[in-house]
């Protein structure tokens, strides 16, 4: 199997689990029980957490928020990054110089720290986290698109289009963008991976989706305290983050190569 196929299989599995979570478990993710911190058994495959909730159910349901955040943030990053990259790459000159400076400035700031800072000010919510992570990731998309647009701008078929009387308003959407689309798709998948990982880190640091909604990063944080009593409580959501990020990473890097 190619990397891309492996990535797709993982992503499909995670998406399926998140989508059909209510059908796959007997417990609601917020339903508390009388058995606290029970180790895994037949009734609770991953045991229960400190409030008696089923860990498996919480991991499956938690995938929804993670996927929404990952895809949403990648979408926001592309909405800002693709036009910025196309503009810089196609126009070149002073426009490119300024756009590149802004991109470099944004890339120079560490994404997680920036995201922490903004989340601390705006407060955590799914929408805020999507916007913040999208804002943190757009320069990478823009830089990549800029480079490709720069290359394709010099292609003879673009020159030929110009010789046929086409202007930038025609050439950029008809020739440049479709030829960059493959790279954008790959970077989209990589950005999803990055956003899911970073949002989990934010949650781990206490700036995730507010409880009681299930959320992988937050579950890892609480699970850490009870690692010796029910290890699955922290390990299961960690594994979920790992599998999801790996899936998107394989898809992205497989598409690029």
């Amino acid at each position: 199997m190619t990397r891309r196929a492996c990535g797709l299989v993982l992503i499909l599995a995670v998406t399926f689990a998140a989508l059909f979570a209510p059908l796959l478990t007997a417990y609601a993710p917020t339903q508390t029980g009388v058995f606290f911190l029970a180790p895994p058994d037949a009734a609770h495959w991953f045991g229960t957490d400190d409030l008696g909730r089923d860990v498996l159910s919480r991991v499956l349901h938690g995938g929804r928020a993670s996927l929404v955040i990952g895809v949403g943030a990648a979408f926001v990053a592309c909405v800002i990054g693709v036009p910025a990259g196309l503009l810089a790459g196609y126009c070149g000159g002073r426009v490119d110089l300024w756009a590149t400076q802004v991109m470099n400035l944004c890339i120079a700031l560490p994404g997680l720290v920036l995201a922490l800072l903004i989340t601390a000010v705006t407060g955590p919510s799914v929408l805020n986290i999507v916007l913040i992570l999208g804002f943190v990731s757009w320069p990478r998309v823009a830089r990549l698109v800029r480079g490709q647009a720069f290359l394709i701008r010099e292609a003879l078929f673009v020159e030929a289009a110009r010789a046929a009387g086409a202007d930038a308003v025609w050439i950029v959407p008809m020739h440049i963008l479709p030829n960059v689309a493959g790279v954008i798709a790959a970077q989209f998948a990589l950005t999803v991976a990055y956003a899911i990982f970073t949002s989990s880190s934010l949650s781990f640091l206490g700036l995730g989706i507010p409880p009681p909604s299930p959320d992988w990063g937050g579950m890892v944080r609480t699970g850490l305290d009870y690692l010796s009593i029910n290890p699955a409580m922290g390990l299961a959501p960690s594994a979920a983050v790992g599998i999801t990020v790996l899936g998107f990473y394989l898809l992205g890097s497989g598409t690029r190569g």
């Binding site: 003879l156 078929f157 030929a160 010789a163 020739h175």
Partner: peptide
């Protein structure tokens, strides 16, 4: 361009998208 004046290039391989 393309209307009164048209041009064909040296590399037919690279002139098509």
């Amino acid at each position: 361009r393309g209307n009164d004046l048209a041009m064909i290039f040296q590399e037919p391989m690279a002139s098509l998208d």
